[in-house]
Design a protein around this nucleic acid. Structure first.
Lengths: 195, 195
DNA sequence: TAATTTTCTTAAACTATCTTATGGTTCTGT
DNA sequence: ACAGAACCATAAGATAGTTTAAGAAAATTA
């Protein structure tokens, strides 16, 4: 795979801690590169999630399809962010989520076994993943708070403010699904927002 | 402090991994016990969160007060669960949350400095906290999914099903605040649920 | 145990959000 | 560059949830 993409991952880690040479080597041997077309998935409903995925370029959406066939976006993952289904990855349970590229994308993936190996061989890698997960938790908690306390209009403004670059790259249908309203209602919200 | 309460914490950890003797000692020196009356708080809005807290007995609620003075419950923490404000704890930011006892409670607390010390001296403790955080993340993600895809009635049934013991100990006002509706509307939901 | 506070319910009017439908616009793959 | 698909706006009628108010039941405190 392109060494520049591995380098992007290493640069990312270096923002958190001084990566040991042994860990750099380990990553070099186990990191897999994958290119995705628009609409291509790296995880589908009912499958086992076997990878931790780092987005080098592009945007992925993580969504759930309910019993009526409606999709609900849990998360967008863009450059230098991680995505996986922890529940499926750690508990060997078939996933109820689907992870799909919204744009042509490039990702790096670490297989489950290799991930556990990294945890065991690099306490700093382990710690780093704890910190990343803590930050992800804070973000989810903030989202829950919004849903129990804010109106759809406020949630939309918050999204625009927090992800200004994403809102230009993602269709309103995807954004509507993320903030939890119908595309039609987002349309009326947008009129109000620009008035 | 009562050694039986420290023992409860150690038993909890032993479910995850074989705790090293050195870590047991460290915990013995740094774990603080605190008794809480009903309505007493361990964290108030605007303060810095300096502790990780383990509930030995009782129930705590973590809530946010919005600009209109309304409270919104993010989390209930009962026996053998952890609670803290990660955002405030790690980033030294004043918290926007409040953590308050719903019942007379007993908690064990680890100060921030002691927590970091534990992370450094026990990679297994560090790892354990990663796993606990991952599980907390999964739970929050499930909540977000519910709010973007399920109706208040469905969220209530889910809560009853997931926390059957909590729903008997907590007032409906607190539950309404947790699932994100007014107490009045929860009342109409309940009528439907028992019909 | 009595007094006080908190909780739960009901109902009516009101607001936010959804559903369905229609038509024009903009993307996307070939 | 074209054809098909996906996207966006608008509007009217339906549903979900809130607000306000008031009274009864239950829990807490003195």
């Amino acid at each position: 795979m392109s060494s520049s993409r591995l380098q992007q991952l290493l640069n990312y880690f270096e923002d958190y801690w001084a990566v040991e040479e042994s860990t750099v080597k380990l990553l070099g041997t186990c990191v897999l590169e994958r290119k995705l077309k628009r609409k291509e998935s790296i995880l589908g409903e009912g499958q086992l999630c076997n990878h931790l995925t780092f987005v080098v370029q592009g945007i992925l959406k993580t969504f759930h399809t309910d019993k009526n066939g409606n999709q609900h976006n849990l998360q967008f993952t863009s450059e230098n962010k991680w995505v996986t289904d922890f529940g499926s990855l750690y508990n060997n349970k078939p996933t109820e989520l689907c992870i799909t590229a919204l744009e042509p994308s490039i990702v790096l993936q670490i297989k489950k076994e290799d991930l556990f190996n990294l945890y065991d061989n690099s306490p700093m890698f382990d710690r780093n993943m704890r910190i990343i997960t803590e930050n992800a938790f804070i973000e989810q908690q903030e989202r829950v708070l919004q849903h129990i306390s804010a109106t759809a209009y406020e949630r939309y403004l918050y999204f625009l403010n927090k992800y200004p670059n994403l809102s230009n790259r993602i269709s309103n249908i995807q954004i509507a699904s993320y903030i939890g309203v119908t595309p039609e209602f987002l349309s009326t919200i947008r009129k109000k927002a620009t008035a």
